[in-house]
Amino acid sequence: MRIAFAFTGAGHLLRESVQTAVKLSEEHEVSVFLSGAAEEVLKMYGLYESVVSITGGKYRELATDSNQKSSYPITGRLSLGKYDLLIVTPATANTVSKIVYGIADTLVTNAVAQAGKGAVPVYMVPVDIHSGPIDTVLPSKMELSKCQNCDECVAALVCEQGAIIPRSEIDLTKCIGCGLCRNSCPYDAISEGKIITIYMREIDIENTRKLTGIDNIQVFKNQMKSWKKFNFSIFFV
């Protein structure tokens, strides 16, 4: 199979999505599509290199908003039916709302639009599908309650990206999730993988409902299973 696997800029279900892409790449040709936000967020969570590692070669490209410019030429393959499946996970509320209202101004939303024109099935896992609270995982975070205001911040000194702002915060636009800062701080003032509870907005939940009405799109809540047509079963756990 030839699969286009698209990531958007959500942290929720991101690690599980990367695991799914890696698993699929073992048996299928997987091209990775990254929105601009996805590229940033994958680095924050230390997952970018895992995604890059499954690319390389024809139908195993790494396509991004930046390298595809404004015309997104790689999405033309979807309109021509050259991919068997497009997977979008995790799908942010922003991506979902654009798809629902026919806006195709990013690599990922354009890919979905072209998949519709090429009769290519689209499997999506929107993050804003559950009513009520959900638990999600944060990238690296400075815990100021534990920070001892050291004269020389060891975490800042070891950070090769210059992402640590001593006694303040982590600049996540520079962070690559390597964990050096967390491992070096003697006061455990930097956390990684902290669980927080968030609440979905009703407008985002409603847009996800509308997504299910688009003919070639199948929406999954928190797992993809029994994709018998394509002879594989992948579970989010």
Rank of each mutant, 00 (worst) to 15 (best):
C185S: 08
M124W: 01
T89H: 05
Y48M: 07
T173H: 09
C153V: 02
R2K: 13
I103D: 02
V30Y: 02
L86S: 09
E202L: 11
K174Q: 11
V237G: 14
T136G: 06
T8Y: 01
T109I: 02
T20C: 14
R77F: 11
E39D: 13
D65N: 15
C175F: 07
N110I: 02
A156F: 08
S50Y: 11
A38S: 10
H28R: 08
K146R: 14
N207C: 06
T89R: 10
T75F: 04
R201C: 00
R60E: 04
P186L: 08
I103F: 12
L62F: 02
R167L: 00
P166T: 01
L157M: 13
L180H: 12
L62I: 05
E192V: 10
F230C: 00
L78A: 11
I176W: 03
L13K: 10
Y187T: 03
L13M: 12
I170V: 14
L80T: 07
I129W: 05
S25N: 09
I164K: 09
S71Q: 13
I87E: 02
A189I: 01
L42W: 01
H130E: 13
A4Q: 00
D128W: 01
K229G: 13
Y123W: 15
I134R: 08
S79E: 07
S71V: 13
S184L: 05
S71T: 15
K221H: 11
R77C: 02
L180C: 06
E152Q: 13
R182V: 15
M224E: 02
S35F: 10
C178V: 08
G177S: 08
P133N: 08
V52H: 02
H28Y: 03
V51G: 06
V154L: 14
Y45V: 07
L78N: 08
R15M: 06
F235P: 04
I214V: 10
V88C: 11
Y83W: 10
K141Q: 14
D105A: 07
E29L: 13
Y101M: 09
M200R: 11
H12V: 05
S233T: 14
T212P: 00
F236L: 13
E192R: 13
T75M: 06
K82H: 15
S70V: 14
A6C: 04
T95Q: 01
S66G: 00
A104W: 04
N183R: 14
S184A: 15
G56K: 06
I195K: 15
R201K: 15
T95V: 08
S17W: 00
V96Y: 03
K174V: 07
V30M: 02
T89D: 02
H28N: 11
D84I: 07
A113Y: 12
S31G: 08
D188V: 09
D151G: 11
E202R: 15
Q161C: 09
V32A: 04
V22T: 07
Q218H: 14
L172W: 01
Q218R: 15
C175Y: 06
C159M: 07
I54F: 02
A189G: 01
G177M: 05
S184R: 13
A111V: 06
R209N: 12
A156N: 10
C150H: 05
F5Q: 06
E40A: 14
R182I: 11
P121W: 03
R2Q: 00
D215F: 09
C178Q: 09
T89Q: 12
E40D: 14
G36A: 12
I170S: 10
V100F: 04
M124P: 06
D128T: 09
